[in-house]
Write a protein that binds this DNA or RNA. Structure first.
Lengths: 111, 111
DNA sequence: AATATTTGACGTACTTTTACGTCGAATTTA
DNA sequence: TAAATTCGACGTAAAAGTACGTCAAATATT
């Protein structure tokens, strides 16, 4: 009976995990990179660069939206996807933090 | 019929995604931090700092082992878990790479 | 030597993820 | 205006993830 034990962890940790989970699929990494490089961001544009069906890509976009890293503005019938600068900043901080932890480790010896 | 489409992506991207997937749970983030800070690394030690059962923690350790970030040396009956310095370095590179992509984005305007 | 503790392995149940097909509405093209 | 295209929404089915209980073996304690 697996219930959401995730809530038992500290909020910081939870949010970091949400970010990394969002990045935990190659399709979503590609989407992120694409959105960072271009500013055109309709579903069709994005799915055409991925080896996946359009609906699947849509689902990955939803996943990214849930993490907050990506925003979707509704523009007529289409949804216009783009990165959320604030959350992207947060992601950067989280990564820099992890890199710090890693660097500390490098000084000591592994078992 | 969802088959492993992950293979359709470039190897680099796949490996990055594997790392992030491994970090995509607060328990695994805590384990990683713990292993970076201390060098004692038996299951009992680790599960005692987490709000999860021992067997669940073991499962998360397996997940981390599958990503390569964590190694498990068998020492008698116990398994001695520790970080894999090479993979940790890889993770660092991947993160620095993403930070680079993010920084480029910051210069342009979102939609 | 008997008991208690600890460990990894296995099984189980429920949830989430992944991937896609199909649908009707809206939009563009002919 | 008719046909084609494109979109988001919904449904579905398989796979993976999450969480734990239990077990037998090994180890430590009494």
């Amino acid at each position: 009976m697996p219930s959401a034990k995730v809530e038992l962890f500290e909020t910081d940790l939870q949010e970091s995990a949400v970010f990394f989970k969002a990045l935990g699929h190659p399709a979503r990494l590609m989407i992120l990179q694409f959105l960072a490089e271009t500013n055109s961001c309709f579903t069709g544009d994005i799915s055409s660069i991925l080896p996946l069906g359009r609906t699947t890509v849509n689902q990955h976009l939803d996943e990214l939206k849930k993490s907050g890293l990506v925003q979707g503005h509704i523009s007529g019938i289409k949804t216009n996807y783009c990165l959320n600068p604030d959350k992207i900043d947060d992601l950067k901080s989280v990564m820099e933090n992890i890199i710090g932890v890693i660097n500390n480790f490098k000084n000591s010896n592994c078992c």
